[in-house]
Nucleic acid binder design. Structure first.
Lengths: 201, 201
DNA sequence: CAGCTATGTCAACACGCATTGACTTATCTC
DNA sequence: GAGATAAGTCAATGCGTGTTGACATAGCTG
């Protein structure tokens, strides 16, 4: 396998010299690998190979693995934030996505998987607190609005992550009645968190 | 640091020769390390050192890292299952625990962290499907009972895992009003999942 | 075209880890 | 008490990884 790939890759394209482009290619490959494998299991060599460049370039452009990780994490979150979700369909839409297979949605949930992997790796968890607050919790909080938005955002974010994990280990879409009930229950939870509480002000 | 511990440990106790005991010590240390660090970041040498034995013994008694992991995982789940929770206070109790710092509860949630870490490591995730079904989802399902217990158990388990992650990255207890609202919302979710649906049979 | 600089390549190094087999010694049996 | 066997120790090996600096060359600049 190893010699096959080596031989196949070698004479392909001498690769145009373009700093911007290769930097972007590395970053892009890194996002995927970190999201799929987490910091500890991701391998620089594989990332580089995926981007079609030499490993040494990640040092030149990013300085090291950890720096690359931080950069990729930021870039992943820059994407769209808590964009204009339709409040009427939000809960249902998310629930359906979560009932599906993890593979149908890879593009959109990549950044959340990234977050999940980062949060559960003991190496990277310490780097997260600020980013979580600023780019994850805060947008959700703002989008939710109303009283106690901070606590509600916390619960919403946590549940979401949990469903993400569940979908990850489940590996395939839910079917039939279980799927329907799952969607109902999950969307009920999200919907409940969108409404402001009945408690004292 | 290294020489200090080495010197301190060396002349302490020559360690009685007891296969059962050392095997148990290794397993016990392993449970803690795997739960805290996950499979990939856990280090056999540290586990052995923690158990007060030589690394070579984990090979003798378990065969290798992966085998030790599986053993520890099983042992962790054997503990008590979904034991006799009081249905009246269940939701509230869990919510309070989740609002607290992850450190106050280490003993009881160790096995769930173990599960979480195992589920989110790409190396060990494949080993989990059966165990998840048999020793995690199924007990919850049985405890919940009623219609659509499988789907509800799924949602309950997923939410719980999510809250666990949130508490993990939060690192400290919630305080004041945010804490109260958090507890209310979370226990509402769990309570909701305990009641059988209003949908069609 | 000559020469310079940014860009890309290569081969090694250092380190941590799991694994392994040969060696030592306690504990038990006859 | 002598010998056997289980229990524990030690040092070394091999592999994968991040990192690094020396080297090659494309593409621009004068």
């Amino acid at each position: 396998m190893s010699d096959a790939t080596t031989l196949a890759r070698a004479p392909a394209e001498p690769r145009k010299r373009d700093a911007e482009a290769t930097r972007a290619a590395i970053l892009n490959a890194a996002k995927g690998h970190f999201a799929r494998l987490g910091y500890d299991c991701a391998v620089l060599r594989h990332i580089a190979q995926d981007a079609g460049v030499d490993v040494a370039l990640v040092k030149r452009y990013f300085g090291g693995k950890e720096a690359l990780f931080v950069e990729a994490l930021k870039a992943s979150f820059l994407a769209d934030g808590m964009r204009a979700w339709d409040r009427a369909t939000f809960a249902q839409e998310i629930a359906i996505t979560l009932a599906d297979s993890p593979h149908v949605d890879e593009e959109r949930t990549h950044r959340f998987q990234f977050l999940l992997r980062a949060a559960t790796s003991p190496t990277t968890a310490p780097l997260l607190n600020v980013l979580i607050q600023d780019r994850f919790l805060e947008p959700i909080r703002a989008w939710l609005g109303g009283a106690d938005a901070d606590a509600r955002a916390r619960v919403l974010a946590a549940s979401y992550i949990g469903f993400l994990v569940e979908r990850l280990v489940r590996g395939e879409a839910l079917e039939g009645r279980e799927r329907r009930v799952f969607i109902d229950r999950v969307s009920a939870i999200f919907a409940g968190l969108m409404t402001v509480s009945d408690g004292p002000p």
